[in-house]
């Protein structure tokens, strides 16, 4: 059982919003801290970053998508 805050593989939306940019593709190698997705919410273009280094396993969103709170956006293997 891992607490979501210690999950370093799955990046989720902390609040509902609109995806305005997706910076990575499936299969791409990312470093910890790389920007994966930009989420427009709370008057901010929030940069959602890679919690750990690895290969992008899945990209669940595209620009323009409206996402719910907690929605999985990108997963890293």
């Amino acid at each position: 059982m891992i607490h979501p805050k210690l999950d370093d593989k799955n990046v989720t939306a902390f609040i509902p919003g609109t995806i305005i940019d997706v910076k990575v593709k499936k299969g791409q190698e990312v470093k910890q801290g790389d920007v994966l997705v930009i989420l427009d919410a709370m008057k901010m273009h929030n940069r959602l970053i890679a919690p750990s280094a690895g290969k992008v396993k899945e990209v669940k969103v595209k620009p323009g998508d409206k996402v719910r709170k907690g929605a999985l956006l990108v997963s890293i293997e």
Partner: peptide, 8 residues
Amino acid sequence: QPLVMAGV
């Protein structure tokens, strides 16, 4: 901290 959760 605007970098994290828009600083809410």
